[in-house]
Structure formats: structure tokens, C-alpha cells
Design a protein around this nucleic acid. Structure first.
Lengths: 198, 198
DNA sequence: GTCTATAGAAAGATAGAC
DNA sequence: GTCTATCTTTCTATAGAC
């Protein structure tokens, strides 16, 4: 089967997702037109509909892809020491969030633009990730190396604290990523009352 | 001067702001039409323009009003003990944020929809609030009752952690506000290595 | 101050040619 | 797979009557 002249399906698909993610994050889902996405990709607006059913589906797939990649990237070892696992989580979450700040921003800001069914799916995936951190905290309390009043609130507090890095981090700023990881790890250690005070 | 029939300027103005804030927070600035705001208020779309120059100005004024009220509501006593001031800040920030969760969400999500001049104004007001917390942390370090690697990052981390409460808090949920304040105050104490371990 | 009416621009999505 | 063209809807903002 001969390829249609001008067809570049192998690269157009990913490009659409990349540009949509970038534009949605910078201007907001509702503020971005399909024409605008198409222009960034270098096609006409009509061509987008060969790749996505509609704009809503495009948003949902971006968010679902992000959450699935987040879950796949986080590899915990439940047999490890809770403090080591927590340190790994802290550094992982910061690095992953900074690497994908557009998707992170989207996944917080545009949940409201999903219809109920799609919203429930993303919330479920997010809950699974939160559960991963909460398991570490519970194990830490069980092992006597952390003191936590409420593991669910501590989970939400830590994730919010870590994700917040995306709000102010700028490449080439005062602190590099490793140093930021060090500092946040110390903050997290204190918050969960880890014994080994650095 | 006789009032025009049907005129209710005293209540329409505040109503417009209230409904705009609510709708912008729930659906996003770009997704909300002036017609929709007008319908919630109970007037026709054209009437809105007697109160605001345009949609952009309406958003900006909501954000500026929120930041000014936040700054006005926070009353610090620089002569007080740093730990007392920090506890007061933690509880204040949570309560204020929960009381105005729509405005809080807006002030994070819709900065990107402000033109550069308006954006700079809001960023300046936010910076002033951040400085207020940072001053407490610096005083705490100076007084030897806190141990902090980097006061600016600790400031950003604490504010993100506290503001995050708005992401999951629901009225009538498992924990009441005071208990939430207790738990977050313990987390904050630990993060800044306050000596009086509870 | 509020209404009706509308100008003018832009949106999402589809049809059919190539 | 992509293009051009277009249908249909909706939007912001303004004009003029009351």
C-alpha cells in the first residue's frame, strides 16, 4: 500500500501530543484552539481529527499517559529500609516533576475540564501513586523510624510540598537539582520525624 | 437623582465578582463566557460592561483583591517568639485558604491568563506574602529554635504544603479544621527542626 | 443600570478532493 | 494522511432604547 503523499503519521501523532501538552499547560485547555495546535505541528486543523476523536479526548489521553508513566517510573522495593525508600521517593518525585512540568501542571489544573468518567480514571491513577507513598510512611512508623500523626495527611502534605518545586524552579537558577533534592529530603525527614537528624 | 428602574448597582457589582470567581475556579477563565457569568448574576451579558472594562480586567481585579485581602489579614508580631509566629502562620494560612479556596485556586491557575503587566503586579504581592513567612524562619534560625538549610526553599515548601490542603479538604470530612491545623503544625515544626518535639 | 440587538471574530468539527 | 472549504455555534464587546 503506497503511502499518501505528505503523510507523516509516525511523527505527526507524537508532535500533536507534545504541542498540545505544551500549549494546554501554558494557556489552559479552554484557551487553546485546535487551529493553534495544528499550526504548531505544521498541519491544518482538520488533520488533527485523524489522530484524536475530539479535543476532550486529546486532553484525557495526555493526562492518562502522564499518570501511567509516573506509576511505571516509580519502582519501590518494599523490602528496603523505609527511610531509604522515602529518600528515593523524594528525589524521584522532584526529578520526574521537573522533567515533565507541563504535564504535572496540566494534571492539577485541568482535571476540572474532564467529564466525570475521565475524571474518575485520572483520580484513580493518582490515588494509586499516593498510596505508594503512604505505604512507605506506614512502614516507617511500623519500623519505629518515623513519627506521624496521620499518614494520609502526611502523604498529601509531602506530595504537595515536593510538587510545588515546579512553581518556582528555573533551569540555571541559584540551586541545581541535586542540591534541591538534598534540601527537600531534609525537610521531609524532619516532617516525618526521622530519627537520624542530619 | 432618581434611580433608574431595575438598577441594583449596590448588589450587582459584588455578585458579578462572586460568580465570576466561582465559575473561573471551577471551569477555568477561558472556559467561562461573559454570558454565563451574567446568567448566574441574573442580568444580561451587556450589563456586565457597566462594571468591568473587559474580561481580562475582571480576572485581574479578582486576583488583586484576593492578594490584598490575604496581606491585610495576616498580622504578624515581629516581637513575638518565632515558633509562636510560625504556628500562627500555619493555622492562618490553612484557614484563610479553605475559606477562599476558589480564589486560591484561581491565583495559582490563572496567572498565565494575565497580560505581563498584570502578572507582575500579582507576583509582587505574592512575593510580599512569601517574604513574611521567610522573615519568621530567619528569625527562628537566628534565635536558635529552628534549623533550616535554605530559608527561601523552606518558605516555598511550607506554603505549597499548606496550600495543598485545598486540593483534598471537603467540608464534613474525616477531620475538622482544627485537627488539620494541629497535624500540619506538627509537620511544619518537624520540617524546620523546631526543638520542642511534641 | 439594564435591556435588546447585533457586529465581527473565532471556535469545534465534518465533508470531500487528492 | 492531509488539504481546503464550510457548517454551525458561540464568543466578546458595543450601540442605542428605556
Amino acid at each position: 500500500m503506497a503511502r499518501t503523499q505528505g503523510s507523516r503519521a509516525d511523527i505527526t501523532g507524537p508532535l500533536i501530543r507534545e504541542q498540545a501538552r505544551r500549549l494546554f499547560a501554558r494557556q489552559g485547555y479552554a484557551a487553546v484552539s485546535m487551529r493553534q495546535i495544528a499550526a504548531e505541528v505544521g498541519v491544518q486543523a482538520g488533520a488533527l481529527y485523524a489522530y484524536t476523536k475530539d479535543k476532550q479526548t486529546l486532553l484525557f489521553e495526555l493526562l492518562e499517559e502522564h499518570m501511567l508513566e509516573l506509576l511505571a517510573a516509580w519502582q519501590d522495593d518494599p523490602a528496603g529500609m523505609p527511610l531509604d525508600r522515602l529518600e528515593k521517593f523524594v528525589r524521584f518525585h522532584i526529578d520526574f516533576s521537573l522533567d515533565r512540568s507541563d504535564a504535572v501542571f496540566l494534571s492539577y489544573m485541568e482535571l476540572r475540564n474532564l467529564d466525570p468518567e475521565n475524571h474518575a480514571r485520572i483520580a484513580e491513577l493518582r490515588g494509586r501513586y499516593e498510596d505508594a507513598l503512604e505505604a512507605i510512611l506506614r512502614d516507617g512508623v511500623g519500623a519505629g523510624v518515623m513519627k506521624i500523626d496521620d499518614s494520609r495527611l502526611a502523604t498529601m502534605a509531602l506530595i504537595a510540598m515536593l510538587t510545588g518545586v515546579t512553581n518556582w524552579y528555573r533551569e540555571g537558577g541559584r540551586l541545581d537539582r541535586e542540591r534541591i533534592g538534598d534540601i527537600y529530603w531534609r525537610l521531609a525527614q524532619g516532617a516525618v520525624r526521622a530519627e537520624n537528624d542530619g
